[in-house]
Each structure stands twice: as C-alpha cells, then as structure tokens.
Nucleic acid binder design. Structure first.
Lengths: 201, 201
DNA sequence: GAGCGATGTTAGTCATCATTAACGTAATCG
DNA sequence: CGATTACGTTAATGATGACTAACATCGCTC
C-alpha cells in the first residue's frame, strides 16, 4: 500500500532539499549579502544544520554560482523566446517587459542577488554568467535599436540598464503596492521611459 | 619660514585622513559589500595599515554608520532646499531630479552603499538613517502628489522608488556613456516615467 | 537481512578578522 | 626643555566561519 502517485525517481525526493537550499540561500543572500550569511544560517533556514549542505553543494561559492547561473540562463532563455516569437518590435518589447517584470515581481530575492553578487562567484562560472547577462542585455538593445534607429548603441545600453534599475526596484517598494497594481505601473513607467530616449540628442 | 597659507587648525591636517578613510571605505563597501571588506583592506587603501583606523573611528560599524548618515542627510538637505525654493511643481520636480542625478553621477559608490548596507548599521544610528530616507522620499511624494492629485500615495511612493532605481542605475552602466551624456538621458527617462503614472488606473 | 548510497550529525581544524594592548615618534605648547 | 597629544606600528586575543572527518541512520536492492 505505497503511494505511487508521487512518481519517485530512483532516489526518493531527490532534488527537493537541493532546491529548498537554493531558495533559502537566495533569500538570505539578498537580505544580508553573501559574506553576511553563514553556512550554518542557510542550513538552519531549511531545518538541517551546517555541514549538511556539503552533501548537495561543493561549497558556499558553488551554491552562489549555481544560483546566478540559473537566473541568468532563465532570463536569457525567456528573452530569446520573446524575441523569436513573431510580432512587431513593439510587441517584442512588450514581451521583454513582461519577462523582466514577472521576474522582478515573483523572484525579488533572485533579482537582488543577481545584480549584486557576481563579484563573489569564482572564475570559471563568473565568465559564463557575465556572458549570459551580456547576451540578455543585447536582446534588449537589438529590439530598442529597431525602435530607435537613430540612437547610438551606447545610449541604448545605458537606457536598458536604467530600465532594469526601474523594474528591479520592486525589492525596495515591497509592500507599497500589491503585485497586480505594481505590474501595470512598472510597465507604464518603463514604456514611457523607453519612448523618451528618442526625444533627446 | 613656515607655510601659513594652509590655515591649519590647532591640529594640522586634522580631518583629511578621516575623510580619506571614509571615501576609501565607500568605494570598497560598494564593490565588495560590508562584510567582504576588512579593516586591513580599508587601511591599506589609504596607506596606513589596519588598526590605525581606530584612531579615527570607534569601529567598522561606526564607520559605515557615519557614511550612511552623511549621505542621507545630504540628500535630504538638498531635497529640502529644492522644495522650498520658489517655482511651479514642475520646477520643483526638476530641481529634485537634479539633486538625485548629480548625486548618482558624482557619488555612485555612496549611492550603492546607501541602498544596500542599512542592515549592517547598529541600532541607534539605523533608526536615524531610516528617518532621513523616509523624509527624503516624502519630499518627492509631496511634489508628485501636486502633479498627480488623483494618484493614491502608495502608488506615488512605489513610483518614486522605481525612479530611484532608474537614476541609481549609474553604477551598472559605468563607462557606457560620459556623464554629460548620461545626465540628459536620465532626466528625460525619469521625467517620462513620472508623467506616465497619471495614464493608468 | 546484509550491503550500500544518500543524507545527516557532531566535533575538530585552520583562516580570517575585528578589536585591544603595548609601544614609538613627532609636532605643539607650556 | 618636557610633557602632552595625535597618529601609527606590530603583536596578542577571541570570535566566527568554511570546510573536513568520523560516525549514524534509513530506505533500498539483491
């Protein structure tokens, strides 16, 4: 009389604990910074204590690396999907906005860690994360370039970063507004901000 | 035959070293986070080594506290000046934008530390910094409320934070654009973003 | 039902680090 | 001059923290 519905892989709940740890670490890193969080803290947050983490990760830095690698590849994947789906440049921009806004609203901790802690990732992984981040930005720049052909790329890049700053402000205004109200606000502000870059220079 | 031109206070270069330390600490904290920087690092950055800092500050946390207290009071002071000077709400908004943009462009390290490290400031000072930050935000909200009377305050507050995010993106787009080009871009994007908040809801 | 792999536990170990102690030195001031 | 003050220096000291070792346990598979 065993429960067969939970389709267990060869090794039972394999991966749950791992995922749990990643989530807890993201929250803690976002709140106190990589060096402000101890292995003990992370373990404690998931109900195991300390060195248990080494059964799942080779070390603290590896944990961070996996976190950032995961975020940056998911972001890039979603961006590629948005860009390759058919539609006008305006449609594509809207799709990109949705990607970033959804991420910012649903995973504020990951977003925070993603743009603060790259410096603590050891070298092999760091390069790859940087590459993914760069590719993500370039998806945006490409679309913006279609909408504003007269705008030089450096300005487009700066504008893109400014927009990320705007959208990623969600951790700061946590609690001010419900997500359902935050989403249209961010979308409107970001759209307007982008539209404005044609009006200067 | 002494040099009298350098108007020395009772104690020679008093305060130079102190200021130098604060500046170095800001840069390091911005780059690696409070816990990622050692007292030795900060000392090294100004050419003295380690425990010399205790001649100027009571400890690492006190150093951070002074940094944040200084930033938040300067921001608030400038905001008050902008708000109390005569002019239309639009003029006042422009003045506020100039305050924040100038700060973001000229002191990116301080801006970065200012919105990341509050959690590491010990309690007496933390409350005061929070208070100053809140007051700063309220200056913005008050002006925005005049421009958008129909907009509920929580939305104004969220929009204000989003705009700070936009303007404070300068550390991320460092090098993309020269400050002379960055300033009008940020101003245009921020103005447009703010104008857009009336168009929803 | 013995062996094994996955997963934890607790008790080291070894660095790093904030902070303090003990001790110069040079300039200022009486 | 002689003392005090401002500033530094190099050794402790005491915590904390990442990581390792040695030792369970438990669910499976054979």
């Amino acid at each position: 009389m065993r429960d067969v519905t939970t389709a267990r892989t060869p090794t039972r709940n394999r991966g749950n604990r791992r995922t749990e740890i990643l989530a807890a670490a993201a929250t803690l890193f976002a709140a106190r910074g990589f060096h402000g969080v101890s292995i003990e803290d992370i373990g404690g947050a998931v109900g195991v204590s300390g060195p248990a983490l080494y059964r799942h990760f080779s070390g603290k830095e590896a944990l961070l690396a996996e976190l950032l690698l995961d975020v940056s590849s998911r972001l890039r994947e979603s961006a590629v999907a948005a860009v390759t789906s058919p539609g006008s440049p305006e449609d594509t921009l809207d799709a990109l906005l949705n990607v970033q806004i959804t991420f910012a609203l649903e995973q504020p901790a990951l977003i925070t860690v993603h743009d603060r802690e790259l410096g603590n990732v050891p070298e092999p992984a760091r390069r790859q994360i940087r590459r993914l981040q760069r590719l993500y930005v370039e998806e945006w720049v490409t679309v913006l370039a279609e909408l504003h052909p007269a705008c030089p790329p450096p300005r487009l890049r700066a504008a893109t970063h400014a927009m990320f700053g705007l959208l990623n402000s969600t951790p700061h205004s946590a609690g001010e507004l419900r997500p359902e109200a935050m989403r249209p606000l961010l979308r409107a502000m970001a759209r307007a901000a982008i539209a404005s870059i044609a009006t200067i220079g």
